[in-house]
Amino acid sequence: MKILALILLAFVLTLVISYLLKKTQRMVVSEQKWPFYVKRPMGAAEQVLYFRLIKALPGHIVLAQVSASRILSVMPNYHFQHWHKRLHNLSYDFVVCDKNFSVIAAIELDDSSPAHPHQQQAAVTKNKICNDAELRLIRWHVKLLPDEFAIQAAFSEPRITNNLPPKHVHDQHVDQLLSRES
């Protein structure tokens, strides 16, 4: 009986000491200055293109620096984790939506700097993903930014993006939004 009591006491002491150490570590971390600073979310070329997009497409919503996983998903009956990981760390410079937030196109700005193999592979992956998802991907060079007329022309092309999930996908969030409107 004494052995069981000693084991229980040792276990409780271990928990208490562990808790106190974690609490102390949290306090030390929170007191130190972390090495973060605020920076601009867009470079100069991206800012220029953003304002041109806004002016050229007044009936649209332009989003910047959008994670691919925010606008793309995996069809049912496919291994979600296997396919979703291909979207990991991929983003689009801009995503253009209509007023209902249906995605019309993704836009990428390419530069002339020698691309790292990682960047080259990301571009190939984005092209494949967009093509298979039937998402229009527009690529413009940083040093050849389109003017408003070229932007309007690019969006007047009759390519329609598939914004609807497969019929067997049920989105409860959409149902909730629609029921509130009724």
Rank of each mutant, 00 (worst) to 15 (best):
M1I: 06
L4I: 15
A5K: 14
I7N: 05
F11V: 05
L15K: 06
L20N: 13
Q25H: 08
V29T: 00
F36L: 12
R40E: 09
G43H: 07
F51L: 10
I54V: 12
V62F: 04
A64P: 07
Q65K: 13
S69T: 02
N77C: 08
H79N: 12
F80A: 06
L87K: 02
H88G: 00
S91P: 00
Y92M: 12
D93E: 08
F94G: 01
V95I: 08
V95F: 02
V96A: 06
C97T: 13
S102P: 01
V103H: 06
I104L: 15
I107R: 02
D110V: 05
D110T: 14
D111I: 06
P114F: 11
P117E: 08
P117N: 15
Q120H: 09
A122L: 11
V124F: 12
K128W: 14
N131D: 04
N131F: 14
D132Q: 14
L135E: 03
R136E: 05
R139N: 01
L144W: 04
L145N: 05
L145K: 00
E148T: 09
A154H: 02
I160T: 12
I160W: 01
N162D: 14
P166H: 13
H168E: 10
H170R: 09
H170D: 10
Q172L: 11
D175F: 07
